[in-house]
Design a protein around this nucleic acid. Structure first.
Lengths: 171, 171
DNA sequence: GTAAGTTTTCACTCCATACAGAAATAAGAG
DNA sequence: CTCTTATTTCTGTATGGAGTGAAAACTTAC
């Protein structure tokens, strides 16, 4: 068990608070933070001791993080334990997070919107929901396009920022 | 008190579930949904009755929604009650939501990241946090640029999607 | 000033869900 | 097959926060 420094502990705590609005709970996020800061993969036992969280809870949390694609299990030679690590590249990490978020939240919500547009009787309500659906559809298409691009290109594109708009002569 | 249709009720309920990951609670989101679907502004009393939620809770929720800029109070002639309505344009609505979300979640998180980069002793951890900060900074700059554009332009820009990248000759 | 209408505050209840710890199950070594 | 080690399931507890309803505090009309 590695004793964490005060600064590290504080960071992990805040990471847990912050990220717990993304669908994962506090402990899950803290585990992710710990792995994110660790230069080498850690096993469940180590995580449990370092964060003072029940061993079983760590197992469940790791499983959930795996479902989200936020951690990767790796086998280490000569040990039968599973070791876990996070993405080496933060951009890949966030791309994964966003993609899961979309799959779990946005896509079902868009289905609900489509259903509502079909079902609602009141014409004003129908129009309003239709407007919202339109917004999501535009955004969703944009995202699907960007999603296909390799990371360095996304990076360049985002760095351009508003300049892209003037370069394209949209205004 | 207006009795809601089954379809409308279902939609409002789902809206509450979905949106409650955005920092507002279920009831607050349901109130927003109700106002969003209503062709005319509603007062707290009506909302309370229609959604079967305690009058006081509605008041508090409306206040919170106001803090978020998600509802606007309007005075109606000959009545001293306050009436509430949502944005007429969904794009404006989401721009407001995103802007609040950034102010309340992203900005503080970026401050934490900067602090951590300064404070952390372990060089690997420092590098990792720095990477994450870099990601947020790129994104934040992009957002600030886009934020300044008028809605129709943002719309055009997003609609272009991946084509923008090839048009700009980035690849 | 008082009275009527409206919002805010506060103390309390209740529910969801995070988390602990024990027990059960599975997997690998010999 | 059996012993050891690792993970999963299950049951109970506890904590945070949503929601209630009454009481207090404003606000405007008269």
């Amino acid at each position: 068990m590695t004793k964490l420094s005060d600064k590290t502990e504080k960071f992990i705590a805040r990471y847990g608070e912050m990220a717990s609005h993304w669908g994962l709970n506090r402990t899950e996020c803290q585990i992710h933070a710990l792995l994110f800061l660790s230069p080498k993969p850690l096993d469940a036992e180590e995580i449990s001791e370092t964060l003072s969280v029940a061993r079983s809870h760590v197992s469940n949390s790791l499983r959930e993080l795996e479902n989200w694609g936020m951690v990767k299990p790796t086998r280490v030679l000569g040990s039968r334990r599973e070791y876990y690590e996070t993405h080496a590249d933060v951009w890949d990490m966030f791309r994964q997070a966003v993609s899961e978020q979309k799959r779990r939240e946005i896509d079902p919500w868009m289905r609900t919107l489509r259903e509502a547009v079909d079902e609602l009787d009141d014409p004003y309500a129908k129009k309003r929901v239709g407007d919202m659906l339109g917004f999501f559809e535009t955004f969703s298409k944009w995202y699907e396009d960007v999603r296909r691009l390799p990371t360095p290109l996304v990076r360049k594109f985002l760095t351009l920022g508003g300049k892209a708009v003037s370069l394209l002569g949209l205004n």
